[in-house]
Amino acid sequence: MAKIKRSLSARQRIKARYGVVFVLPAFLLATVFMIYPLFASLYLSLTKYNFAFDTKPQFIGIENYVKAFNDSAFIDSIGVTAVYSILYFVLVMLGGLILALMLFYAKGKTSVFRTAYFLPIVIPLSLSSFIFNWILQKNYGLLNYFLADILGAGHLTREWLSTNPWAMISIVVVSVWATVGFETILFLNGLQALPEDMLEAGIVDGATGFRTLFSIILPNLRETFAVTGIWAILQALKVYIVPSLVTWGGPGTATTVMYMYVYRQSFTYLEMGYGAALGFIMSILIMVLSLLNMRISKKV
């Protein structure tokens, strides 16, 4: 018995050694490309370092963080991101859920629709943003052409990208168009995972239509809501490409979101220390909101 024990532990030791060898590459990659940069940028955020003009970073403690909270342009960009995020979150979650429900209940062949909804995800966002920038132009844009020359409704034409609130509405609509397909697929997976006998039991008990939806389907999609919610929050808060390429942050600063501001500090002004501090503030903000979403989803 003691012999078996000894041989087992020897085998375990060998296994453990192999385990270490197998884990090592992933550990090294994570260390080099994730953990080290994380701590390096944390240190950078505590320094004053302009890449163009300073020879080396100068440690200044939490000064960059204090500066960030007194920086009215940064605070404004948080406000703009908040407005964008709320609109985007509501529309993409609702849109994704409604489309998924439509696909779920349309028992026939829905592959064409699934492809259509998912297609925008496949197109690079930068490319579709460029295209929307053209479509929404005032004088030669397709939308105004369609409204005025095809529908004969010239009074509906707008300067979509250079007036408030249309600029914000434009970037939200483009973002929702680009990502709602992914949310739809996530919701659809959640719906398809629901046990059929549960739905049938509901029908036997007399639940139909909206009653089934609100009393059976939605409460059982809690985990899906958590996943789609976190994804939508991440997409909303890290928005950068669409406002950068569709509205260029304007008119004024009406669509200048946080990431645009951080990018400008880091890569236009080359203020690496301040840029890193802003990046950490954003990361913390995203983490808090994601945790909040998980807590709410669990409670519901």
């Binding site: 929404l136 132009q137 005032k138 990208l161 509205t247 260029w248 304007g250």
Partner: peptide, 13 residues
């Protein structure tokens, strides 16, 4: 026109 707000090239186009 304000079309250059969102695209520097808009006027040229």
């Amino acid at each position: 026109s304000k079309e250059t707000y969102a695209d520097n090239m808009a006027g040229r186009n």
